[in-house]
Design a protein around this nucleic acid. Structure first.
Lengths: 189, 189
DNA sequence: GTCTATAATTCGATAGAC
DNA sequence: GTCTATCGAATTATAGAC
């Protein structure tokens, strides 16, 4: 009878349904174009309920856009395969259920201040530290910056703009080709 | 007395002032958040004039977002320096006066259908053909796709999101590091 | 918990005086 | 050419009945 996890209180199910609908709408329309009304309709509930459960559009966005890159400890990995590992990890996170926050952030970051700030935070708190263990500290910001350009571009072209030639790239090709690039950026080799 | 090119009819000067203001506002806010009223204020004229000169917000956007990548003939270049040449060319275009259309498109493409379609067109009509002369036709879409991810990511991180470590990269570093990546992507080597 | 009604803004666009 | 006034639509958010 329920699509959602069983044995939840009704209020929790409603809240989860709103969050799920909000993820879809925010991810496909961006923050500005998404409306409370549309999200409510997609969740099959009344628009007022969205406000009741989340308070405001801003807070709803902040909640569903939350997510972690959850990078593994790169120092513990085979040093020759760091690039490939990084790409494979990013792809997994972005295509996972819990990774829905990334397309949302990315699509809204271009015109929403909160999303843009969150994106900066994300790279400062997770990508930069990861680069610190892979080479000289002085060059870590530069290496992190280069890594960021390549990964953000892949995500933008593939998941947001959906450029046909990028969408058509198969996973192995991406891991191999872009992995080689990240390997060079990350290790400075 | 005039900031704009001398000896224009007043109507042309007004039109140019609106277009210049629109470029700034669209580039910094994106399509949705930019308002006719704000653009008019930035241009120092009445909001009604924007409609009179451009008809609608859509047509104003289409006009100021227009631009060309204007790629040189890559086949005529030193084959070992194609990557560096590409990056240097992109940087020049994006930072030039007439290249203002690109940040505008990029910032709006995530949530504006016209901008997204225009971006697809741009790569299909200009990047893909350029790849055709550099290697086997079969792999041209794949090579163009990879090039697109790296260049879009650089533009996004540097000009739209303004990620500090990417903004701080100096031009020589970008040309060298990202040039090497494009060299590999474009030539398939 | 849920919904109706509506307040309060804001926006793009138009009509018309001067 | 320029501006005042305003329309009509859409939005977030709230008040309050049931």
């Amino acid at each position: 009878m329920n699509d959602k996890p069983l044995k939840m209180k009704k209020s929790d199910r409603t809240r989860a349904a709103i969050a799920a609908a909000a993820q879809r709408i925010f991810a496909s329309q961006g923050y500005e174009r998404a409306t409370i009304r549309e999200i409510a309709a997609a969740a099959g509930i009344d628009p007022t309920m969205v406000m009741r459960y989340f308070g405001s559009k801003d807070r709803l966005f902040a909640e569903v856009a939350e997510f972690d890159l959850d990078l593994p400890d790169l120092a513990a990995l085979d040093r020759d395969r760091i690039g490939e590992t990084l790409v494979a990890h990013f792809l997994s996170v972005w295509e996972s259920e819990s990774g829905g926050g990334f397309p949302i952030l990315l699509r809204s970051a271009a015109s929403n201040d909160y999303a843009a700030a969150r994106m900066q935070q994300l790279f400062a708190a997770q990508v930069l530290p990861a680069m610190l263990v892979l080479g000289p500290p002085d060059s870590a910001p530069q290496r992190a910056g280069l890594v960021a350009t390549q990964m953000l571009g892949l995500a933008l072209a593939r998941y947001v703009l959906r450029l046909p030639p990028v969408v058509m790239l198969d996973r192995d090709t991406i891991v191999r080709e872009i992995g080689a690039t990240l390997q060079r950026y990350a290790t400075g080799a």
